[in-house]
Amino acid sequence: MERASKKSFIKIQNRYGWFFVSFALVLLGIFLIYPILNSLYLSTTSTKGIVQKSVGLTNYVKLFKDQMFLTALKNTFIFFIIQVPIMLLLALALASILNDKSIKLRGVFRTAIFLPAVTSLVAYTVLFKMMFSLDGFINTILMNLHIIKDPIPWLMHPFWARVTVIIAMTWRWTGYNMVFYLSGLQNIPDEIYEAAEIDGASKLQQFFHITLPMLKPIIVFTSIMSTIGTLQLFDEPMNLSQGGVTGSTTGPGNSLLTMSVYIYNLCFKFMPNFGYAATVSYVVVFIVATLSIIQFRLAGERK
């Protein structure tokens, strides 16, 4: 008797489970999974526009001899390894400060720090290029403060160009990630902090022993999203490097060429080879998936 009712309960539960996910599954099946299968097929072809021929897996072999692809891979990883940790730590710090009710003008600070995320890409690009030009705002300030003697060639030297992109990305996305942390912090009951306060735990201890563990799901979320975002990084390098009349390379000596920019070039700037572009895309997928699984595991979350 007991068992039977439990069984039917599970059955009903299961039915509700499918009901809740059904709308999304149907939509995703049509608008995401189907195109993916289609493009997987495409990755085994080589195209010159509509002149298409099947090449099997040779696209995947070609990749490892493609100097341009290897440059893109290297650049993308540089951005990933340096930028993501800086940004997430900053966002976490800001979120936990702004979650403290004793801070004045919290609403103003919150909105202000979120602002960069809503700024249009065009404005942001024009402005950053202006601020980081040779006789721009940043160099002027640094020189007046005697931090540097000669202007820094921000967007004209491979190393500095990467630094500029990292600064730009951090500026644009920190507030955005902060919002997710803030919403996550709301799910932690105040009583826990109050109890810790009574026990004499310092703010820093509270952060490490309460905030971090409770926020873990959201931290995993933002770090995986940032991984995907960085490995598909496109806007910043593309727009900050738009060179003069022809835009020959992405950044000086292709220092800002990322995998997504390369995919874009393969489709729209170079002789359109959609098949090869699809191949590069699946390499990106493979890398992101690997990194995400690592992050899930590190966080000790079940799949």
Binding site: L28, I30, F31, L32, I33, Y34, P35, I36, N38, S39, L42, S43, I228, L231, Q232, M259, S260, I263, Y264, C267, F274, A277, A278, S281, Y282, V284, V285, V288, A289, S292, K303
Partner: peptide, 21 residues
């Protein structure tokens, strides 16, 4: 898991099939 994985496919790769659809 499949859905999460599919989020990782760059949009550029899906554009043409999706457009046809």
């Amino acid at each position: 898991a499949i859905i999460l994985l599919s989020m990782m496919v760059p949009f550029a790769a899906l554009m043409i099939p999706l457009f046809r659809l």
